Amino acid sequence: MKIEEILGKLVSFNTVNDSEKEKMFDFIRVFLTDYHFRFKNVGACLVAERGKSKIGFLGHTDTVPASEKWTTNPWELVQKGDKLYGLGVCDMKSGIAAMLFVASQTEKAVTFYFTYDEEIGFAGIRDLIAEEEFPETVIICEPTDERVLNTGKGLFEFRVDFSGVRVHSSVATDDKNAIFRATDFINELRNFSAELRKSQPNHNFSIPFTSMNVGQISGGDSVNSTAEKCWIVADFRTNPNEHQKVREEIKRLSNEQPIKLTILNDIEPFENKISEREIDRIFDRNFEGDDGMTEASFLPRTTTRIIYGAGPDTSHQADEYVSLESLKRVAIIYKQLIEQS
């Protein structure tokens, strides 16, 4: 099958919220069986192995929902010139199509990992890391527009609950209001974030410093009463070497106030060492960093993690598309990586 035909078949499965994940897995099994792969389920993930390999490729099967602004059928691959349209063609069924196509082009050993729930909770990669031993190198086939990403920021995400005393606003004082306690805490976060910006910038990332965001806040129930409760959810996207500093500071700030801290995600940054290995020569371009969060961040430190896929990156957009020529170039690189491993 041509690579675009494989992609068309993948797009035909509605894997929004993994609803037709098993149908897609069935297609993958049938396709790869012809090329001497063996299969196993790890949690609810599918792993396909051919021989004992030093390299693996990883792709998630789920997509975001299609918006009402689509002008084509989201579950039908439509080609217009060099552009291939369909829900998930970019994020990231093009990467999976390249994996399957390359499996038919070489007989070398390789391992493929097919995960689920990447768009919401990362349950699939958590299944894998709990049980699987990974090869020396894993390529995460996310759309990067052919940029080679070999380092990723960390994520420290947390919720803080504040308590106050409910009294009438006519007799209110600042110390009784949970919202004021929350805003004081937010100001502390902003001051700490400003200090981090003074650190040595890491120009591998488009945002070269550790960044902070308060994404949610809720509190109080009446305009004429002080707030008895308030909560916030915030996160830091951490540069390598600053994650522990963030972790310690949030815990220190939490210990100074009568609050409840709940850590939602504590995922450390990763950074591969650049060397004169064959894998680096195959890419033959500058390595960059990934500002966002992918499944690469969950893999063990002993594994070299590289994020590399086709483009342009139109993830989550209406009329999502990928360039056929970009997809073909990426497949050539995938094949070279497998054959040199």
Score class of each variant (00 low, 15 high):
Met1Asn: 08
Lys2Val: 01
Ile6Glu: 02
Gly8Asn: 06
Asn14Lys: 08
Thr15Ala: 02
Thr15Asp: 05
Thr15His: 00
Asp18Leu: 03
Glu20Ile: 02
Lys21Tyr: 11
Glu22Arg: 12
Lys23Met: 08
Met24Tyr: 04
Arg29Trp: 09
Thr33Glu: 14
Thr33Asn: 12
Phe37Leu: 11
Arg38Met: 15
Phe39Leu: 06
Ala44Trp: 13
Val47Lys: 13
Glu49Tyr: 04
Arg50Gln: 14
Gly51Val: 01
Ile55Arg: 09
Gly56Trp: 05
Leu58Gln: 10
Asp62Arg: 05
Asp62Lys: 08
Asp62Met: 01
Thr63Ala: 06
Val64Lys: 07
Pro65Cys: 06
Ser67Met: 04
Lys69Phe: 08
Asn73Cys: 02
Gly81Met: 15
Ser94Ile: 04
Gly95Pro: 00
Gly95Lys: 03
Ala98Asp: 03
Met99Trp: 09
Ala103Trp: 10
Gln105Pro: 01
Thr106Trp: 13
Thr111Pro: 07
Phe112Ile: 00
Phe114Lys: 09
Thr115Ser: 08
Thr115Cys: 05
Tyr116Gln: 00
Glu119Ser: 01
Gly121Lys: 11
Ala123Trp: 13
Ile125His: 15
Ile125Val: 02
Arg126Asn: 04
Arg126Lys: 15
Leu128Ala: 07
Ala130Cys: 09
Glu131Ile: 05
Val138Cys: 15
Ile140Trp: 06
Val148His: 04
Lys153Val: 04
Lys153Trp: 12
Phe156Gly: 01
Phe158Asp: 00
Arg159Gly: 09
Arg159Met: 11
Gly164Asp: 09
Val167Asp: 02
Val171Glu: 11
Phe180Glu: 10
Ala182Trp: 10
Glu188Val: 04
Leu189Val: 04
Asn191Ala: 10
Ser193Trp: 13
Pro201Met: 09
Ser206Gly: 07
Phe209Ile: 00
Met212Cys: 09
Val214Ser: 08
Gln216Arg: 13
Gly220Leu: 08
Ser222Ala: 14
Lys229His: 10
Cys230Ile: 06
Val233Lys: 12
Val233Tyr: 13
Ala234Gln: 12
Arg237Phe: 11
Asn239Asp: 03
Pro240Ile: 00
His243Trp: 14
Glu248Cys: 02
Glu256Arg: 11
Glu256Lys: 15
Leu261Thr: 01
Asn265Lys: 14
Phe270Val: 03
Asn272Ser: 08
Ile274Lys: 14
Arg277Phe: 12
Asp280Phe: 14
Arg281Ala: 12
Phe283Gly: 02
Asn286Glu: 09
Gly292Thr: 02
Gly292Lys: 08
Thr294Val: 04
Ala296Gly: 13
Pro300Met: 08
Thr302Gly: 05
Thr304Asp: 07
Ile306Glu: 02
Ile307Gln: 03
Thr314Ala: 12
Ala318Gly: 14
Ala318Trp: 11
Tyr321Arg: 07
Leu324Thr: 00
Leu324Lys: 14
Glu325His: 12
Ala331Trp: 11
Ile332Gln: 14
Tyr334Met: 00
Tyr334Asn: 05
Glu339His: 12
Glu339Asp: 15
